[in-house]
C-alpha cells in the first residue's frame, strides 16, 4: 500500500515536471498534442491528492500526511536525479508498474 502511494507521488511529480517544456523535451521522444499538455498539471495534482487520500485512509490522516510529505521528498529526489542524468529513464518506474502484472 505504501509502495503504491510512493509511485503515485512519483507519477504526480512527473506529470508536473512534464508540464515544463525543458523537461518534456528531455524525457519524451516527441511533443504530445496540445490538449494533453493542458491536462498535465491538473493530472499531477490529482495524482498527488490521490496518494494523500490513499495514505490518509490507510494510516489515518496525521500519520498519512507525514508519510505523504516524506514520500514526496523521496520520489521527488529520485525524479530530479533521473531528470539531471538519465532523463529518458524517468518514465521507467511507471513502465515497471504497468509491465509487472503482464
Amino acid at each position: 500500500m505504501n509502495l503504491a502511494a510512493l509511485l503515485l507521488t512519483y507519477a504526480g511529480l512527473l506529470a508536473l515536471a512534464l508540464a515544463r517544456p525543458p523537461h518534456r523535451r528531455a524525457v519524451l521522444p516527441r511533443e504530445p498534442a496540445h490538449g494533453c499538455l493542458r491536462l498535465l498539471p491538473p493530472l499531477g495534482w490529482l495524482l498527488l491528492a490521490g496518494a494523500a487520500c490513499l495514505l490518509g485512509s490507510d494510516l489515518g490522516w496525521p500519520l498519512g500526511l507525514v508519510t505523504w510529505s516524506a514520500d514526496i521528498a523521496g520520489s521527488g529526489f529520485a525524479l530530479i536525479m533521473l531528470l539531471a542524468w538519465r532523463p529518458r529513464l524517468a518514465l521507467l518506474p511507471l513502465a515497471l508498474v504497468v509491465g509487472l502484472p503482464l
Partner: peptide, 8 residues
C-alpha cells in the same frame, strides 16, 4: 517553479 531543475 524550477524546482525540478538540477543542472550538474
Amino acid at each position: 517553479a524550477d524546482f525540478f531543475t538540477f543542472r550538474p
